[in-house]
Amino acid sequence: MITNERGASIIGVILVLAVLTLSGVIFVSVFSTGVEESTGEVLSSRALFAAEGGMEAAIGHLKKAPVATNWLWKDGYLAKPMGGGTVDAEVLEYESRDATLAGANKCEPFESVIVSTGANPARTVYASLAWSSASNMGLELYDNSVADCNNPTASANLIASSATSNMPETIRYRVQTAPPATITYTARVLGVAGDAYKLRIAHPDETNFGTGNTCGQPAGPPYDACMRAVISLGRHMDARREVFSGFSRTP
């Protein structure tokens, strides 16, 4: 009996040790995962800070005196050191094409001049559509002028579309055409007559982009002031974060 009792104790000790070991392993495992997640968040935040720093630097460059000259700056940044990481930034023209649909669609052409100069020449087209009407709306991007907005593919190719149930609809497209090139794209808004919407388009500068209160080509309404946008990509080790901003200036 005594012998049996001693054997039972050994088994109990072994069980206790096994439970403790398993708990330790689980604890260590859980603890180390938390460290990894925390480290990744820190790097991501630092990448975001780099992106925001690049945005601030680009805006600062655009608005420094004499602004008449510097507002036209479009070189951007490529691997610019920023807070221990780096940042790439593209400088874009930014247009507001707010309107109300008269029919089921409306086409907004815009010109982009693709150049090779500068550290990071603009290649991004970024369009966003928001609306206040109850009905859902959609957005399409075509690679040319659209002669008939009811039949866009007769004169242009569809590059991308966004027709979700959410708002806003956004399309982001990277220009593939080799420089130098001047390309007219068309943003096509879909909805129902009477829908009021806000369409914002950021793209490489037009031919006659300037500091005036109207854009260059094509000239005239409905769009308003020439504005700027910057898209800034921050990197910190393996983390990447991106910031986009459209803005105007006064004076």
């Binding site: 420094k64 602004v67 974060r241 901003s245 459209g246 803005f247 200036r249 006064t250």
Partner: peptide
């Protein structure tokens, strides 16, 4: 004298 001010119209962060 005056300075140039920038008015942010749109701001997005992407992951």
């Amino acid at each position: 004298c005056g300075v140039v001010n920038v008015n942010i119209i749109e701001w997005h962060e992407f992951r």
